[in-house]
Design a protein around this nucleic acid. Structure first.
Lengths: 301, 301
DNA sequence: GATCGAATCGTCCAAATCGTCCATTCGATC
DNA sequence: GATCGAATGGACGATTTGGACGATTCGATC
């Protein structure tokens, strides 16, 4: 269960990040952490800010469990094996609540959205997909696994909040005919964690419509997931038209997904491509705080 | 009614501002917050005061709306008209956070899952769908609206929890080729509220696989939503095979969705049919022992 | 109108945070 | 090796906050 505690005090954040209270206070005062103040001048740090800082600064030993008020979970039954093994087992057995708890506990352990996506969810869903192919799993089990993960990820997305109001904007979408929600959700999570504002337009979106949204919202980044493409030639044609709108507003496109093999990619124009969320994160970092954030100027951390 | 209750109690404000109840009481007593009193000395804090405090503390307004589980908003902007009008406007304008808050506030106002589904979400989505048809809305806006509602509904589902362990089991699914997630989520919400355990197998599920799941989990009820059917004859054939499995475990099937017109329905065997969630609820009540409804209170967030 | 659980009341005190100052540490530079 | 600037961690009294307590009020239900 996700803690309902929305704001953290200095000591909590200090413990979580492994620094002193004084340092947290100084970081807040210098603007590195955006925090509100109580009438009595106490600092209130939004959960999302603490989490963003923890990931951005790359605290490997950050005890993110403290951020959520989550006591370190004792090893329960079923925790044997690697995290991937464990989650796969829970999903196969249809243990939704347990799977969701495990998912969120894993996230809290400090791996961040990228680790969650690339090291846990992706391999698990590959295995489940494989099990479905070879017949050891029924379709409904694959559906149920997706449903469970979707539910857990949406909870995390909601928890991370709408993003920083002044953060750069990213649009996310999945191509027409593509029914896979998980990549879009994971992308949203990754970018939220990096301080972006994200509008995830969901699955099965025609590129024409994504172009309209691009012109209207003028994002700095667009992440497009394509796990399935009905007609490649038609897709390429629509993509080129779409890319004109993108160029018009100066946005960057990063594409991903199994459907975009090398041959197809060679016919498209985009700023980045990646199979993993790590690629998306790396890419986004180059685009996120270059101009406006004074926080990186003083600290070469 | 959504627009009643112009005052907030101490606890609400405390949660919204991220401080304790004691602090709110002290602030009111010291005059920092102007508040009225009931005859029994309870503090009544005008929403505008809470809003002012939130601004002074430096929190974005959206946070306040989200965290206070807002049952009422000031009439400043946007709340004019019926709840349907209001939610439609928020969705059209892409105000996700506000729309989600509104959705949840509406639910908390006591209408229950059935009222939420039939009186708010269904008409709103009909309007949005209509706007898309006539071209006043782009596809991405329809997608975004669905995305927003999905997110809000999932949050409610998660909070209603996995259902009572001893409650009767229901399976939910949406037919193959049907991409609409909302009916399934609403059905899940309705049944959870009635004390059922629910396994929602999600969209785009072949009936063959639903049959397998039925044999394995042996539910008492199956709710099947069909907004789109590719091939009616094939569907009828598969449905009959599916219904054998259903009969084998003694489950009841209730079907719904636009795709199931009268002519098609006459060819199918089911225990119930309904266009509205009220039908599903009524039907489910007959199949489950009288259960107290675990309506979600204000303590959810 | 009577009843009952949940929320709030007022009051109290321990605990946490405030701002400030200073010693220490760590690189970079001279 | 010495020096300097920047960042950190800890200590100080003053202030603010959070939680506990029994009594009271609210609100929903019968």
């Amino acid at each position: 269960m996700i803690s309902a505690e929305p704001y953290l005090k200095t000591q909590r954040v200090a413990q979580a990040l492994g620094v002193s209270v004084s340092t947290i206070k100084r970081w807040v005062d210098s603007g590195m952490i955006q925090a509100a103040r109580t009438v009595g001048k106490h600092r209130l740090i939004p959960f999302s800010e603490a989490l963003r800082l923890a990931r951005e600064q790359g605290f490997p030993e950050a005890n993110l469990a403290l951020l959520s008020g989550l006591a370190s979970r004792p090893r329960e039954q079923g925790d044997a094996g690697s995290p991937v093994d464990c989650l796969e087992r829970l999903l196969r057995e249809g243990k939704r609540t347990e799977a969701r708890s495990f998912l969120q506990a894993y996230y809290r352990s400090g791996v961040g959205a990228v680790g969650l996506a690339d090291d846990l969810i992706r391999p698990v869903m590959e295995r489940i997909g494989h099990g479905w192919m070879v017949g050891s799993l029924d379709i409904y089990q694959e559906h149920e696994a997706t449903e469970t993960l979707t539910s857990g990820l949406r909870e995390l997305v909601t928890r991370l909040g709408p993003g920083r109001p002044e953060g750069p904007l990213a649009l996310g979408a999945t191509t027409e005919g593509d029914p896979y929600v998980l990549p879009g959700l994971l992308g949203e999570l990754v970018l939220l964690e990096l301080g972006w504002r994200v509008r995830n337009l969901g699955i099965n979106l025609p590129l024409r419509s994504l172009a309209v949204a691009t012109l209207k919202h003028r994002p700095r980044l667009i992440f497009l997931s394509a796990s399935y493409i009905r007609n490649e030639d038609e897709f390429v044609k629509e993509y080129r038209s779409f890319h004109e709108s993108v160029a018009a507003v100066g946005a960057a496109v990063i594409v991903g997904g199994q459907a975009l093999g090398p041959s197809l990619r060679s016919r498209l124009l985009f700023a980045g491509h990646g199979d993993r969320m790590a690629h998306l994160a790396e890419f986004a970092r180059r685009f996120s705080p270059p101009a406006e954030s004074p926080m990186l100027g003083d600290a070469g951390l």
